[in-house]
């Protein structure tokens, strides 16, 4: 399982009600059901991923996050999750507002575009970074709204979003450096938020 998914479980209450936005093949939702006995729904638009969720016996609902969460009532979930999908949305800030309306708490993970490799790539080659984690060209990438950790912190301040926890995880190198200079050495951010 992806390292950010593994960390998320610590912030999920036993038996809580979960909404997972862009749930992919349902790995995280299944894990949380098995380990935390959560009651959960996943939202997804990709047909193959929806099939994978159905194979796992999960509740998966076909829904485009860019059309909002207007069909879910205020505070109707304990936690609304969104892992590695923020950067693919047309209006990430509005979806974030919606997540905080629908959920008592939110957990968001996203890749750090301020990581030194991305900066080095851009600085030395003068071209948009392509890496193992983000293996797309600028024109075909689903990731259309990149941000750095610092950008996200500013967004939270501007929108009066309370950061309950913040954590930086690295899949590979820079395990020590990331704690000192997360915006330069952190690969993936995990934010635990409330309003």
């Amino acid at each position: 399982m992806r390292i950010d998914l593994n960390e998320i479980q610590h912030w999920i209450q036993q038996g809580s009600r979960i909404l997972d936005l862009g749930c992919g093949d349902g790995t995280l939702l299944k894990f949380l059901i098995d380990t935390k006995q959560v009651q959960g729904y996943g939202l997804e638009i990709d047909a193959a991923q929806i099939n994978a969720c159905i194979d796992k016996g999960l509740n998966v609902i076909e829904q485009n996050l860019d059309s909002g969460l207007g069909n879910f009532a205020d505070k109707s979930f304990d936690t609304v999750l969104m892992t590695q999908a923020l950067q693919t949305l047309h209006f990430p800030h509005l979806v974030l507002d919606e997540m905080l309306r629908v959920g008592k708490e939110c957990i968001v993970t996203f890749p750090n575009f301020g990581h030194w490799k991305a900066r080095y790539y851009l600085a030395t080659r003068g071209r948009m970074p392509v890496s193992d984690l983000l293996p797309y060209e600028w024109y075909n990438t689903p990731n259309i709204h990149f941000c750095t950790f610092n950008d996200f912190e500013v967004l939270c301040r501007e929108r009066n979003i309370k950061v309950i926890h913040r954590q930086v995880v690295n899949e590979q190198s820079g395990q020590t450096l990331k704690d000192f200079m997360p915006n330069l050495f952190g690969e993936t951010a995990i934010y635990h938020l409330s309003k």
């Binding site: 729904y41 047909a47 929806i50 969720c53 159905i54 609902i61 076909e62 829904q63 009532a73 109707s76």
Partner: peptide, 10 residues
């Protein structure tokens, strides 16, 4: 979903 029942939708 509002009634907290299991549902999948395609």
């Amino acid at each position: 979903v509002g009634a907290n029942r299991s549902v999948s939708y395609a």
